[in-house]
Design a protein around this nucleic acid. Structure first.
Lengths: 337, 337
DNA sequence: CATGCGATATAAAACGTTTCCAAATGGAAA
DNA sequence: TTTCCATTTGGAAACGTTTTATATCGCATG
């Protein structure tokens, strides 16, 4: 009783109707007499018919599948985002094909082409930087593309983000307002726009606004990982003029920073204050709990997918460049006011 | 110059050959004269032809796509597993359709049917427990299914796991060998086989082997999260006869356990010793660093996918029930010997 | 110079739907 | 009754490949 290989034609014969009618029933087309509909439905149940989505995709040119390109799904940040995407996708009856790019230009381009070959109805892209080649490919895409937690560049794609510049400003400002005149800034590679153009800019603006100079050596670049945060802070601690306030580009780095400080025998927040970024689950899994910029990853994914469905349904779109609100979640890595 | 909607037929005309020949070239079939192959390849490049995988899937009944059913991709554990799957999938030119089940029977069944409707070539399933209905569906599946980090039940599917019973035994035994006669056991719901049948059994066997009695109250069930680990340990600490050694079912719970202990003013490992399970990245993101059972998530995913490719290629399979090795990574949450 | 054979190439039939257009049906109005 | 529409159904052509059976080509062989 393998429910396999029973086709719409078999159902049609079983129900003594044409396959067109079966198709209408399956697709909920209203132009079917109720008695006929029942007859067909019974045949479907009896035969255990399951529509072949591939054939359907070929005939209708819609696959109800969207592609998701992500640097690395094993990264908690992107995993959360992906979950947001998938939940909304499910809500709208889409499935997602997921691919990891490792932020490699070649893999991104290759993945994109594979997905287009599979006739996905749309694509959600995440990546640190939009290489030119990739943008060229994007321009040629026959299906809509939405960026999630990824800044546009040279081509005006729909995108969902927070205001990274302002967020970095807020975090830095908060530390300055706590009486620090030097703020350490430990973040990811500047090639990635979010760091190089946004967080860095916000950091500097906050310094300037408060009349503080920018010291090159107060900024250390890592690669987002715990280890790189730990290492960066260790390096910073070696200096006599080590900043007593640190803004870390990700929570994971912030944990490394805190541990480096503690390993050196200092206290957070008494000796050092630390602010992270993203508010991943990690933020509460450390003592002291981490004060951090809330970037709603799940929501970014969910909104990006919703935006994509709107585009796919040709619904009216008020704003294709969505900026979600951010805030700072105050926890114990910052002293009480 | 939209590379879209140029079909194999267009290429055939452009190259003055039949579409069958183009098909051969695209698929690397050797029965094509080199000059013809070149001619066709040129036409392909000139036109920017990209084969339509949907049409191909319909004609060949292969989609080079596999379905992956996972409880929750935002869980670091499954995210790692998924990454292993995807890497190997890419290696063998497959793509993956990813779906979250939240371990709900209904979602699992629904997802499975959706995937089968999409004509995936195979499925990798992860889930805490195989409900009967689901097993029934599995039996009817026209494509192979492989379990990853999921125990078989009532139907002999290919599966990739570690020896959870033995791992729990090893962890418990290690704590006993450190001089403890009561071992706290904090894990997830017993309905999930891995806990109820394996880890629990290993824990008890270790106790028995050492002539220790099993105390009901030394076991607390949570839901895998940090918060539930924290809470469980807090509850345990209220007791006078609180065990001084804890085996936690996941690293995340172990972190909660450690923090609960520290919050109460005790030291790990001086006052309490803790062993976790999984060796997720979290294990090194805490002080003291966590001693934990190494479950190679990435490898489990990778091996599961590799196993699936073997089945799909009808390669010979030495053992369809793969048990990967585990070990305990000793870190600072355990006292030096 | 015919014959035969391997190597290549072609034509056409699947594959399982959707969808357009035309046909049948069934009442209501005339 | 007819006539006419609206509703419901059916037929058949797409959709873009793979694949099978068949044809053609080129060339060595007898």
């Amino acid at each position: 009783m393998n429910s396999n290989n029973v086709t719409i034609y078999d159902v049609a014969r079983e129900a003594s109707v044409s396959m067109a009618t079966v198709s209408r029933v399956v697709n909920g087309n209203p132009n079917v007499k109720p008695t006929t509909r029942k007859k067909v439905q019974d045949a479907i149940d009896r035969l255990g018919y399951r529509p072949n989505a591939v054939a359907r995709g070929l005939a209708s040119k819609k696959t109800t599948t969207v592609g998701v390109i992500v640097p690395d799904i094993s990264n908690i940040f992107f995993a959360d985002l992906a979950r947001g995407i998938e939940d909304v996708a499910t809500m709208y009856k889409y499935n997602i094909i997921l691919g990891n790019s490792d932020s490699s230009r070649d893999k991104e381009v290759h993945l994109l082409n594979t997905l287009l070959g599979k006739q996905v109805d749309g694509i959600i892209f995440m990546g640190g930087r939009l290489h030119e080649d990739l943008v060229e490919e994007f321009k040629k895409s026959p299906v809509p593309i939405v960026l999630a937690a990824t800044l546009n560049q040279g081509y005006d794609l729909p995108a969902v983000n927070i205001d990274y510049e302002q967020a970095a400003y807020d975090a830095t400002k908060m530390l300055i307002d706590h009486g620090h005149d030097r703020i350490g800034f430990i973040t990811g590679p500047l090639e990635q726009q979010i760091n190089g153009e946004k967080k860095f800019a916000g950091y500097r603006r906050a310094l300037e606004d408060s009349g503080l100079p920018f010291h090159e050596q107060d900024m250390i670049l890592g690669n987002y990982t715990y280890a790189s945060g730990l290492e960066a802070m260790q390096k910073m601690l070696e200096r006599d003029d080590c900043p007593k306030a640190i803004f870390a580009g990700t929570d994971e780095m912030a944990l490394g920073v805190i541990h480096a400080i503690q390993d050196a025998g200092y206290s957070v927040p008494d000796d050092f204050e630390v602010v992270g970024h993203d508010n991943t689950r990690l933020a509460t899994m450390i003592r002291p709990k981490l004060t951090t910029v809330v970037q709603p990853m799940y929501d970014i994914g969910a909104v990006a997918m919703r935006l994509l469905t709107k585009i796919l349904n040709s619904e009216e779109i008020e704003e294709k460049n969505v900026v979600l609100p951010h805030r700072i979640e105050r926890r114990d890595s910052l002293r009480q006011d």
